[in-house]
Amino acid sequence: MIEWIAVYVLWLRELKRFYRSKSRIIGSLVVPLFFLVFLGFGFTKTAVAGVPEGVDYITFLVPGIVGMTMLFSSMFAGISVLWDREFGFLKEIMVAPVKRVSIVLGRIVGGMTTTMIQGTLILLLSTFLGFKITGVMPLLGALLFMVLISTTFIGLGLVSASKMTDMHGFQLIMNFVIFPLFFLSGALFPIENLPSAIKFLSYIDPLTYGVDGLRASLIGASSFPFMVDLIVCIGFSLLMVVLGTYLFDKSESV
């Protein structure tokens, strides 16, 4: 049984907080935009090996950067449990007569909403750089993969948060989890170019399938078949949500 009213109020809170911290929204959009603009234009004349025929680099890059935006914002949304702990608000949430599943669900739905807004904004902004969204189905496909990436990494964020006691560990997570996940995912270049030992790591990176799914949807070219991306992404997101919920329930809130 899930208390939907609790899920709703947690979702509403995330949205209000998001809307009220405009500097954070802008900050979270600037980095992906820099990547898009500088890498996109910087390498536009270069032939990057492995990029499909007839696809220019910036077109190849856009799904990767959308994936990157989703990765960073989702991890942050999951780890932000630690902020609540630091400010004491977690106690207020945890002492409430609400099932832990509902609390996690509220956080995931709230985080998903805000990260989807950010990812969609990047996708829209990329059209000003010449990226073309070819129809409704490609867009829906992309949104589906964005949702899956979001759930996976909010879940992973919750897992990370349950292993830390304060925000000091965030830099560590940034350097040793988020950046490797990003670089291994093939967001910036085709993973086929990587040496096989490293390529193996790419294959166990959930974001690899997320970015590949985004490419399959948006530009119709991908390393794996669409269905493989979809099934793997659904699998990872379910796994992470279950694991995140379990560890969140186990961790102490004071």
């Binding site: 809170r13 907080r17 009220r20 911290s21 400010f87 004491g88 608000f89 207020e92």
Partner: peptide, 8 residues
């Protein structure tokens, strides 16, 4: 100790 959401 305060357990309030300061952004609300």
């Amino acid at each position: 100790e305060p357990a309030l959401d300061t952004k609300l």
